[in-house]
Structure formats: structure tokens, C-alpha cells
Write a protein that binds this DNA or RNA. Structure first.
Lengths: 151, 151
DNA sequence: GCCAATTCGCGTAGAATTCACAAAAACGGA
DNA sequence: TCCGTTTTTGTGAATTCTACGCGAATTGGC
């Protein structure tokens, strides 16, 4: 289980993974060796699954962010796996979830422009046999940027 | 602008930010010094906005992931700012967007359990003066985990 | 009060990053 | 084609960080 210091350490690492053991120690009132050991432990026990670089989507040329809701025509395990493979293979689909409620799937999508989003919907998703209905909502503003997990 | 090697470097850093300059060099057929220099350049020019640790939500005790759609009662700039402050202050709200379509806001939320999600909706969001309607969809399965941005 | 076990801090060895410098390549003009 | 300039590339040294081991201290149980 995690104590308060672990949680604060995880929060700090989510904000900035390049903090050194000494930085962490100062921030948490710990000696550098302890801070380092705690991080090692949290990594080994699987609390930290990895370290990633965060990119500026605009700088990367991804001007359009959207959410796409998808309903499938038929609901068998084979169709589901089929669709899962499809979204896994499309790099512009950042994440995909199955939700309670009307839509079967929610996709989070980054595209270079609206043309690309349109192409994704009409030339990739809709032609797929199992896809019955697609509804896209374009992001106008990200009010809160991807924040660290509450720990 | 980015060339192909830059894009592959950014993709690699999104998968694993702890790759060393030598690792990057081997992966991209570059000398370690060049790989390091490219990374420095991409950081300095703002393509990389930071490095973050990725956590296992389950391990962190966050068993419930949900999307919450919110409609505001009135649509003035003051109300919008008010609501933006609210979501910014709630740690269980990971991200928030304004979208085209029916709902004014979409919130991505991580909670420890359904009770917490319920509390968030009925004791935080709904009592807020500007909030007119709240509709939550619980994530049953994350078909595609948060993937790197397409570069 | 004593002993065991865990935790803590320090020091060292290995590795990575960063910077500067020199060589090589690319480029442009005469 | 040749030469001077500019940019790029590789190497090396200095600094810094991480990982690991060892001795000391603190904690907990009996």
C-alpha cells in the first residue's frame, strides 16, 4: 500500500519525470537515497508503468482533436475484436473505450486537420462492416490539460 | 519543421522517455551525439513539453474511469470561467474539453469507486449554480490505452 | 531491557548528459 | 574546378546522477 509520501512522490513524478533523487528529496523532506529507493520500489512494484515524453500537439501539426462515438451493427465477440484491431492500427486514435450508455465505443482522435478527420470517419470507420453509426464531436478548447492521476 | 528522423525520435521518446542517447542512436541509425543533440533541439523548440511518469490506475486504487458530460444553465464568459475553475480544482478530473454538439463540457474522471463518482456528480457538480445537466458514462474497458501522438 | 529486523545515511563505482573543440562534409562563388 | 566559408559530425573531458553495498541507528517484539 501507499503512504502519503509515496503519493506525493508519484504526483511529483507525474508532473516532471526528470526530477532527480535529490530534487525529490528536497520536495518531500527526504534524503536523496530514500527518495531514490522509494522510486525504485514504486517502479518495481508496478505503480509506475513507464516514463513518456509529452508533446505539444499543435507543434506536431495536430490541430484537430475530436471524440468519435461509434455504434456497432452487431454485438458479438468477433465483431468487437475486429473493431479493437482496427482502432489499434490507426495511429490517430489515441485512446478507445467501451462505455455504458448509447454508444458502444468512444475514440479520442488527433488529426492534422478536418480533412483528415473526415477521411478517418468516411474512409476508415464507416466502410468497416461492423460499424453502424458514427458521431464525432470536435474539441473546441481543452479547458483542463491532461493532468496527473489523483493519488 | 520536423523530418522523418525527428518524428521517429519523438515517437520513441513517447514510448519510453528513459531511452539513452545511445539507445536512440541505435534505434534511429544515428550516432549518440546526434541523437542527443536532436533531442535537445526538440526540447528547446517546444516540441517536447515535458516528461511524465505513467501510473497504473488500478494499482493507485482508481478502479472507476468515467466520462461526464455537462451542460451549463447559462452561457456567459463568467459562467464558463467559473466552471473552468471548478474542474481545475478537482483532482479526479483528469481532463476537460469543450465540444461541438449537445454537451458543453466533457470531463474525463478517475475515481476510487462508484461512491466517489456519485459524490463528485451529486455533491460537487450538480450543486454548482451554473450546472444544468450532468450525464455520466462509465468506462467498462479501455480498448486502446493512451497511445503516443501520431507524428 | 535486550535482541532481531528493518530502515537510514554515506560513500563509491558505473553510466549518462552536456559542453567545447577539432575534423569532415556541404555549399557557394569566382 | 578550386578555394574559402559555413554547417555538421565525432571525440573527449568534466559534471552529475543513479545504483549498490556497508555500517550505524532506530524501531518493534518478547
Amino acid at each position: 500500500m501507499l503512504d502519503l509520501t509515496d503519493k506525493r512522490l508519484l504526483a511529483a513524478l507525474q508532473r516532471n519525470a526528470h526530477m532527480t533523487a535529490q530534487d525529490l528529496g528536497e520536495h518531500l523532506n527526504l534524503s536523496p537515497s530514500q527518495a531514490g529507493r522509494r522510486r525504485q520500489r514504486l517502479e518495481a512494484e508496478g505503480y509506475v508503468t513507464g516514463y513518456t515524453a509529452r508533446l505539444d500537439p499543435m507543434k506536431a501539426g495536430l490541430t484537430v482533436q475530436a471524440f468519435v462515438q461509434v455504434q456497432l451493427a452487431t454485438h458479438g465477440p468477433e465483431q468487437a475484436q475486429n473493431f479493437a484491431r482496427l482502432v489499434a492500427a490507426r495511429p490517430e486514435v489515441i485512446s478507445a473505450w467501451t462505455l455504458t450508455g448509447e454508444a458502444d465505443y468512444l475514440l479520442r482522435v488527433y488529426c492534422a486537420d478536418l480533412r483528415d478527420l473526415n477521411r478517418l470517419i468516411h474512409e476508415v470507420l464507416l466502410p468497416h462492416a461492423v460499424v453502424a453509426r458514427v458521431q464525432s464531436q470536435i474539441v473546441m478548447d481543452q479547458v483542463k490539460p491532461d493532468a496527473p492521476l489523483p493519488t
